[in-house]
Design a protein around this nucleic acid. Sequence first.
DNA 1: TAAGATAAGAGGGACAT
DNA 2: ATGTCAGTCTTATCTTA
Length: 306
Amino acid sequence: MMELTVNRSTKDRCPRCAQGGILSDTTTGENFCDKCGFVLSDKAAASGPEWRSFSKDDGTDRARAGTPTSLAMHDMGLATVIGHTDKDATGKPLSASMRSTIERLRTWDNRTQVHEPIDRNYRQAFSELDRLKDKLAVGDAVIEKAAYIYRKALEKGLVRGRSISALIASALYAACRDTQTPRTLKDIGIASNVKRKDITRCYRLLLLELGLKMPVVDPVNCIARIASKTGLSEKTKRDATKILKTAEESKISSGKDPMGLAAAALYVACVANGENKTQRDVAEAAGVTEVTIRNRYKGLKVSLDL
DNA sequence: TAAGATAAGAGGGACAT
DNA sequence: ATGTCAGTCTTATCTTA
């Protein structure tokens, strides 16, 4: 059963078609338009105050709370920095000699924070991760997970000889798998500009070296994603879910690409409900080919006695 | 124009050597 | 470690309704 919570509290209109309201899908964490299926990035909702609130000109805005600590920051958001106020704890100006001392400390404080190779690596990786987050519209939990995996990988020295972008992309893919967030290798490949082959190689390496255990992705989770991309009705979605359930029971689903399976089920449900979607439409939304849909379709027909 | 069929090719898992 | 095999998916092309 696909839960769909309607997010009526925000009166947001879809930025693309300006007609639909914004719904959020609790299984994938995606926000999308109920009319045209446009998927929004969750950037706006997640952006908090700046993570370092020390401003250059004055030190009076103590009201800022800052963000919680995050693994997806090179120093986990915990860095202590020396402020720029040149005042002591009681607010009195510093003496000239003390000021130059502090100035020198500040310089070194900066250098140790930014210029250590490990930190540089993290910075680069996590800025890449942030980019991917926007492109793929995944939730914060997935990003945290990906960052965690990446840190583990770096500790084990797995980055040597591999590109950071490939590593971070596969860490993100692993995080998606782990959190049951349906994103395909293809999605991540496109977003990260890393070849699918490289991602899979790194991904397997991560599983091997870190001893990760990944749950098999449930095709049911894929349905919501494809359906929202193609703008299908709730009923079709429910029917497709039912079809998948029976297909699983007749064990034709094992070893098959879950996206292809979900796409085929949706296609069957489309035909049954008289929704005018071609195989191509569904295939494109699912990121598989029409041939794959046809093949799964054949298997589905057997299990449903059509 | 959509749907079905067929063939060639790639990549990876299982298994044996 | 390396090679082979069965099975899956993709791409491309042709046919059918």
